[in-house]
Nucleic acid binder design. Structure first.
Lengths: 186, 186
DNA sequence: TCCATGTGAGACAGTGATGTCTCATATTGA
DNA sequence: TCAATATGAGACATCACTGTCTCACATGGA
């Protein structure tokens, strides 16, 4: 008997690969009947919302565990830099599993999800702003741009993995150093 | 009378905003009857393919105009650096108009389009490799990663514009400097 | 004026996905 | 063993979209 959670994981994996997959395809991917899938998730919207919520939960747990607000308040360059790096590593590790949540149309249209995503983004940006104030990150661009740039590099990380252009074990290092020091030769 | 090209532009705009828009919605957005839309583009697939082709044409024209292969062959650091910057500026200028082609499911599934996209990507990567060899870009990451990173920053640029977080006139400078020197304070 | 071409509105059937339902079967625990 | 629960297979109506077609109308040129 497939648990609700294992179905959810399989659905996420399938929809990650093909965001337009029908409920029938998702059910098959989860090794479960279509009726059973509907028993757990009444509608396709409900399923997508749940996957989106799950991704946001994960995102939030990273921010919580790294204690982002406290680190930002500390104004300690060392702590901030360390937290920043750790956070990016966390994100990179999730980038391909939660990848489609990054760009899926539905996720970006459901108000409840986008509102929460914006709130999490704002928490993250606070850290970036603190990092700028502490001299860890450059101050000549907006903190929100920093956030977008990191997000973009996560998309890049996902694509690079999918294309087999970067080994998984190198990925977080590559993303981190690209973000911090850029692509120019030193 | 709406020209075929103006319909195509309107369709691109609409699908950029909502990639799942139906033919009826696209027709309305183009200020044209659904029948007329079908007269110009027999199927929805044909329409999407045409938009994708158009985007690839644009991409290719940038590579052609900047004479990427010749610049790469020149091995001249100055020329390469200049070409690189110009190219990124070109891409940034297109990022929001051609944005959905970057991430749309269909575009990424149609073999003819992906094959051509891969070929263009390879041309681009040749320039990055030459830039690495000439000491313009760092050599400790793969040239293809450079390509993905730039692509990711274009997604970031699109999102930043959509969110209103960066002024359009600042955008190319911000993207370029973020790519070259990263986000860390100097 | 008359004709030709292009257009919009709408009807139409076909298709695929959705969500609901039933029923036979398997699994689980008492 | 027996009962309760969960499942898979499948039938079913519904719905939205697609692609095709027809017809009335307008616009523009001969």
């Amino acid at each position: 008997m497939a648990s609700r959670d294992s179905i959810l994981s399989a659905a996420q994996r399938q929809l990650n690969q093909d965001p337009t997959a029908s409920m029938a395809v998702v059910a098959e991917a989860a090794g479960v009947g279509r009726a059973t899938l509907h028993r757990h998730f009444a509608t396709r919207e409900a399923l997508l919302t749940e996957i989106g919520t799950r991704s946001l939960d994960r995102w939030q747990s990273h921010l919580d565990e790294r204690d982002v607000a406290a680190v930002a308040a500390s104004a300690d360059p060392g702590r901030i830099a360390e937290c920043l790096a750790a956070l990016i590593r966390d994100f990179v590790a999730d980038a391909d599993d939660f990848g489609f949540a990054l760009t899926d149309t539905y996720m970006c249209a459901e108000p409840a999800l986008t509102a929460r995503a914006e709130a999490l983004f704002a928490r993250e940006v606070e850290l970036y702003a603190a990092a700028q104030a502490a001299g860890v990150l450059r101050g000549d661009v907006s903190a929100r741009w920093i956030g977008h740039a990191i997000y973009g590099l996560l998309v890049a990380a996902r694509d690079a993995i999918r294309a087999g252009d970067v080994a998984r074990r190198d990925l977080d290092g590559v993303v981190l150093s690209t973000f911090l020091t850029g692509g120019a030769a030193r």
